[in-house]
Computed example of a mutant assay.
Amino acid sequence: MRPGRARLDRAVVQGFYDRMRAVAPAAYGAIERDRVGDPGRPFADTACGRLAGSLDPAGLRALGMWAHHWCMRFYDDDTRPGLRLVREIAGRRGLGWTVDEVRWMLGESDAAGPAAAHRFTLPLAAVADLPAGALGEVGAGGAGWWRLVG
């Protein structure tokens, strides 16, 4: 555990995994379909775009968290459609990100290490959607992600 980081309650984290598991089959299928499709198509015309367009803000947050988690774990695989999905969700404002969701994504990003080049794309966009100071003192001292938000 990094200095200044609060541990998330296990039930909260399990809730994240449950929500992500609910969107995972559709998300994986959409990414696989887009992997063989035309990468130049407008996002709304892709399988990932249609999936994202079908979800409410809570579902879109779960999809974003799953894609973020998946892309970090398989960064050495062909994740272009997944990274595009993450960037598209990161570009949407007003999704209602919670402090716990953001803390979890930042922690996962930090743990993934520098080999996962795009690991902060979604969490930092989500941070920008939080009220000022919502993350508390995570910016205090040290190196790593908390320096980016502090």
Rank of each mutant, 00 (worst) to 15 (best):
D76T: 15
H69W: 15
M65Y: 01
G49V: 05
D56K: 06
M20V: 01
I31D: 03
R147Q: 12
V127R: 06
G94C: 06
E88G: 08
D45I: 10
L55Q: 00
V102I: 09
L60G: 01
T121L: 12
G4W: 08
A44Y: 04
A126H: 05
R73A: 15
G142S: 03
L135Q: 08
R41Y: 07
R50Q: 14
L122W: 05
P131C: 10
V102P: 06
V13N: 09
W66P: 02
A112S: 11
V12W: 10
R5Q: 12
E101K: 02
R80C: 09
I89N: 02
G49A: 04
A115T: 13
H118C: 12
A126N: 05
V102G: 04
R80L: 13
M72H: 00
G37C: 05
A58R: 15
R80E: 12
E108A: 15
M65I: 03
V99A: 14
R119K: 00
P123F: 04
F120H: 09
V13R: 11
G53K: 09
R10W: 10
R84E: 09
D77V: 14
G133Q: 00
G82Y: 06
F43A: 00
E101Y: 01
L148M: 09
A112G: 03
A140P: 00
H69F: 15
L83N: 13
A52W: 02
D45A: 15
R93N: 08
D76L: 15
G82Q: 06
G82T: 10
D34E: 04
F43W: 04
A90P: 04
G53I: 07
G40N: 07
R147L: 13
G139P: 07
M20A: 10
A62I: 04
T121K: 06
H68R: 02
D100Q: 13
A143H: 11
D18F: 02
M105D: 07
W145Y: 14
